[in-house]
C-alpha cells in the first residue's frame, strides 16, 4: 500500500470508496450541517443525524440541505446522544462518528467504554493531523484533548495509539518527538525525564515500531539548522511524524495554532485508541476545515476495514 502523505490522497480515497455511515452527534448546527451536506454530496458519508429533531431541521434549512432519506435519531439529552452514537458504532450500524455541537466531555464519557476500545488499549487521546507546505508527510500533534497531565505510562499509551494510525496510513516506522522545554536555564523538567524514559521503553519493545527522536525540541532536532537558514530555506524533511506534548495545554495550543495563519491545509482531529474513527472538530472550525476532517475519517475507516 502506498503511504498516504497529504489531504489530496485522503480525498481520493474518500471519493473512491463506498460512503461510510457516520453519526453526527448533536447535529443541530448550521456549520456542521453545511459540512455534512457537502460530504454526502461528494459520496464520502451517509449521515445519521443525532439530536433535537427541530433544531436539526432548522439547521438543515440554513444549510439548504434536503433531509429526504437521511436518518434522524431524535434525542435532546447530550449524554444520551453520545451514548446512542457509540452504541451504533459498537453494533456496526455506523462506521464512524463525528462530534457536532456537543461539549466534548459527553463524547469522551461515552467513547471510553471498554467495548469501544481497540484490543489492548487502556487510554484514549486526541490526535491532530496536519499537512504543512514543504513537508512530504503528515505530522500529528497529540494529546490535545483528553489527558491533562499524562504520566509516563499514559504517554506510552498515547504514542502507541498514534503510531497505530500512522501504521495504517502506510508509515512503517514513524518518528516521535516527545517535546520538552528542557533548556540551558532549566534542563530538569519532568518532560525531559519522560523523554529519556520513552526512548528506553522503545528499545525494550514496549511500543510498536517507531523511532523516538533523541531530541527535546525542534531546535535540538534541527541541530545544524544554521546552514539551512543561511541558504534561505530550512530543510524540513527531518520533521518528526508525531509530536507528543507534555500536557494538554501545550497539545491543544499547538494543535490549533493554524488558526493564526492562512494557507495551511486544515488539520483533522481524531481520537486515538478507538475501534472505529471518532472525529472531533474544534467548535471553532468552519465547514472548510471540517470537510478535511471527514475525508480523513473516511480514509481511516476504510484502512481499518481493510486491515480487518
Amino acid at each position: 500500500m502506498p503511504t498516504i502523505k497529504n489531504f489530496d490522497q485522503v480525498f481520493k480515497i474518500a471519493e473512491r470508496e463506498d460512503a461510510m455511515r457516520m453519526t453526527v452527534i448533536s447535529a443541530g448546527d448550521a456549520e456542521v450541517m453545511l459540512t455534512v451536506k457537502e460530504a454526502r454530496e461528494r459520496g464520502f458519508i451517509e449521515p445519521i443525524l443525532i439530536g433535537d429533531e427541530d433544531k436539526i431541521k432548522e439547521a438543515s434549512k440554513g444549510a439548504d440541505f434536503n433531509l429526504d432519506g437521511v436518518k434522524i435519531v431524535h434525542e435532546r439529552e447530550p449524554q444520551v446522544m453520545a451514548y446512542a452514537s457509540v452504541e451504533m458504532a459498537i453494533r456496526g450500524d455506523a462506521e464512524m462518528q463525528m462530534k457536532g455541537r456537543l461539549p466534548t466531555s459527553y463524547l469522551y464519557r461515552a467513547v471510553i467504554r471498554k467495548r469501544f476500545r481497540s484490543p489492548g488499549v487502556k487510554k484514549f487521546n486526541v490526535i491532530d493531523f496536519y499537512e504543512l507546505p514543504s513537508i512530504d508527510h503528515f505530522i500529528a500533534i497529540t494529546d490535545s484533548g483528553i489527558n491533562i497531565t499524562p504520566d509516563f505510562e499514559t504517554k506510552l499509551e498515547i504514542i502507541q495509539n498514534t503510531v497505530s494510525i500512522f501504521h495504517l496510513l502506510g508509515y512503517p516506522e514513524p518518528s516521535v518527538l516527545p517535546l520538552s522545554a528542557a533548556r540551558e536555564v532549566n534542563p530538569d523538567l519532568v518532560s525531559a525525564r519522560d523523554n529519556r524514559l520513552l526512548r528506553t521503553a522503545r528499545r525494550e519493545g514496549r511500543v510498536d515500531d517507531c523511532v523516538i527522536e533523541d531530541a527535546f525540541s525542534l531546535s535540538d532536532l534541527f541541530l545544524g539548522y544554521r546552514r539551512y537558514f543561511d541558504r534561505g530555506n530550512l530543510d524540513l524533511s527531518k520533521t518528526p511524524h508525531i509530536f507528543l506534548t507534555p500536557n494538554l495545554d501545550a497539545g491543544n495550543i499547538l494543535a490549533k495554532l493554524y488558526h493564526l495563519f492562512e494557507g495551511v491545509r486544515w488539520p483533522a482531529h481524531i481520537i486515538g485508541g478507538a475501534k472505529t474513527p471518532v472525529l472531533i472538530p474544534s467548535r471553532g472550525d468552519d465547514h472548510r476545515m471540517m470537510i478535511n476532517n471527514i475525508a480523513f475519517g473516511v480514509a481511516i475507516a476504510h484502512l481499518m476495514e481493510e486491515k480487518r
Binding site: 513537508i135 517535546l179 522545554a181 523538567l189 525542534l218 539548522y225 524540513l236 520533521t239 495550543i253 495554532l257
Partner: peptide, 20 residues
C-alpha cells in the same frame, strides 16, 4: 500569555521552524 513553559517554548519553536 501562555499557561506554562512547555506550551510557550514549543509554540515559539513551531513558529520558527514549521511556519517560517
Amino acid at each position: 500569555l501562555f499557561p506554562d513553559i512547555e506550551s510557550a517554548y514549543a509554540f515559539y519553536q513551531f513558529l520558527i521552524f514549521l511556519f517560517g
